[in-house]
Design a protein around this nucleic acid. Structure first.
Ligand code: MN
Ligand code: MN
Ligand code: ZN
Ligand code: ZN
Lengths: 146, 146
DNA sequence: TGCACTAATGAGATTGAGTTGCAATAAGGA
DNA sequence: TCCTTATTGCAACTCAATCTCATTAGTGCA
């Protein structure tokens, strides 16, 4: 695992405390790991990545759920029946989101931070689609499988 | 269950035979049920709907999988960790698809046949996003929960 | 700095949707 | 009508997700 700077450690500490969560070794490890990822990770992924630290899988599971509960991470199923977790990123004080992509053939998951989606609503579409609070999930063939 | 016309029965029969599947009571019931739905249904939904017919849940399960296998239905997870099945609809001889919607609060699932999605690709987006073979899944608040 | 309170942990047990094995049945072709 | 084998019904199994509970340890406060 990447060594973290004192500044980063302080930020993680503050993040957890502000959410009302205690600062424990497993919890810090989970947050720091998620911060280092560029795609959402599953509980199984996380257990594998932090294996050497010796945390219990139930502990990692509950930390993911707790972090999702307080809104620090998202918990989503990208269409392949696997729960995946990802840090919510902020710009200033509002959360920025991006579409997610899953290859319908090989199953590869990736974030699409540079893809914009314009939704053209029809008569019967939910009104909320006009807002920004919309999560987009795209399934298609990746370049390797196309 | 809705009574089916002789014509509809004949169409279901042909659909199955052309796919290389035998025409059995449970299988016909599954197809006819799916044809009558306006939103994708889960295996549990289907078992409940066809309860009075007394089919075994493994039989219904395998029929859903078989129908997905031969391309008569789709099998997708709309973001809530539930597999759902839906007839593929055709216009002429090509399949038409539509985005799907799940309310992030109440979990309601619905089809958005009248919503168009324009994907604006950035530098690192998969090339396949330029094609039509893309499944779109949207999560937001429904009108009732907003 | 020590104490009390309770959140969090670790190990194990439990749940249930999803899936499979197998013998009996029945659809479809000859 | 008979043969082949896809399909069914039922029970059993799998494994990720979830929970139980005794123990540990983070925090607020004296
Ligand atoms: Mn992402
Ligand atoms: Mn649909
Ligand atoms: Zn792929
Ligand atoms: Zn809703």
């Amino acid at each position: 695992m990447r060594k973290r700077s004192p500044k980063e450690a302080g930020e993680t500490h503050a993040l957890l405390r502000e959410a009302g969560l205690r600062v424990t070794d497993p919890r810090v490890a989970v947050v720091e790991h998620l911060l280092g990822q560029t795609a959402p990770v599953s509980h199984a992924d996380l257990c594998r990545s932090l294996e050497s630290a010796g945390f219990d899988r139930a502990t990692l599971y509950r930390n993911l759920m707790d972090l999702a509960q307080v809104g620090i991470v998202t918990r989503t199923d990208l269409g392949d029946h696997v729960w995946r977790f990802e840090m919510k990123r902020r710009e200033g004080n509002h959360v920025v989101s991006h579409p997610h992509f899953v290859c319908s053939d090989c199953g590869t998951v990736s974030c699409l931070p540079d893809v914009a989606v314009r939704i053209v609503r029809g008569k019967h579409a939910p009104r909320s689609l006009a807002t920004k609070n919309v999560a987009i999930q795209i399934t298609a063939l990746c370049d390797a499988c196309a």
